[in-house]
């Protein structure tokens, strides 16, 4: 048939994606990927604080067919489950549910799965529960910044050594980015860093500095 690399189910979800949109005042939020390096996914959660069940989930995609289809399927799989159950949804399960995805497209579809896990983590950080209960240390900051892309390379800012002089003290995080302030990607990187760190329950302020 036509469009052979994709299964009928992928095409169906691509044409009629489910759970697309935004949630106002979400309990959990994540943005994975970056327009500068390719696909990007945003994911929004509403979570019941007592049962930790996902009551509502929505996503937006700037991506290819497999990215859109994976976003659709994982939001369907996660809806109504607890955050613990949702954390365990793997890329493979999502791919199986879609009847398979081309190998080449793993990267684009993993992004949606990452977004779900990150949104749950964001919820936990806001609530100070689970993984998010951890106190913010330099190590934790580094771990979190592995989810911020270096737009010039498409690899995260930690691996590409873009971040220096991380300091954490009394709820204040200070970070130096190895870019000049007027660099075309400076403000995007700053925004991404703040987005990853500010929601943490024990963080009050995130200061991002650039090189002179």
């Amino acid at each position: 048939m036509a469009n052979a690399p994709y299964t009928e189910k992928v095409i169906e979800y691509f044409q009629n994606p489910k759970n697309v949109g935004e949630i106002e005042d979400p309990d959990g939020y994540a943005k994975e990927g970056s327009p500068a390096c390719g696909d990007m996914v945003e994911l929004f959660l509403k979570v019941d604080d007592d049962t930790h069940e996902i009551k509502d989930i929505k996503f937006k995609s700037y991506g290819c067919a497999s990215n859109i289809a994976t976003g659709s399927i994982i939001t369907e799989m996660a809806m109504g489950s607890t955050i613990e159950e949702a954390k365990d949804i793997s890329w493979q399960e999502a791919a199986d549910e879609l009847g398979g995805l081309p190998d080449l497209k793993t990267h684009c579809s993993v992004l949606a799965v990452d977004a779900l896990r990150e949104a749950i983590r964001n919820y936990e950080e806001r609530q100070g529960i689970g993984e998010g209960k951890k106190e913010t240390t330099v190590e934790v900051v580094k771990e979190r910044l592995k989810h911020v892309m270096n737009p010039m390379t498409g690899v995260d800012v930690i691996q590409t050594d873009l971040i220096h002089d991380i300091e954490v003290e009394d709820g204040k995080i200070s970070i130096k980015v190895d870019l000049e302030e007027d660099h075309q990607f400076a403000s995007a990187v700053k925004e991404d860093i703040k987005e990853k760190l500010e929601p943490r329950w024990d963080v009050e302020e995130v200061v991002v500095k650039f090189v002179e």
């Binding site: 469009n3 994709y6 691509f14 044409q15 696909d39 700037y62 991506g63 290819c64 067919a65 859109i68």
Partner: peptide, 30 residues
């Protein structure tokens, strides 16, 4: 702007329109 080329070409293909894109998602090399 704001959309990805492979998604556009796939939608067009479903309507019987054949075009190509410079998107990384479309190429074998990514």
């Amino acid at each position: 702007h704001y959309v990805e080329g492979e998604s556009i070409t796939l939608h067009l293909d479903m309507r019987g329109i054949a075009v190509s894109t410079g998107s990384a998602c479309f190429s074998k090399s990514l």
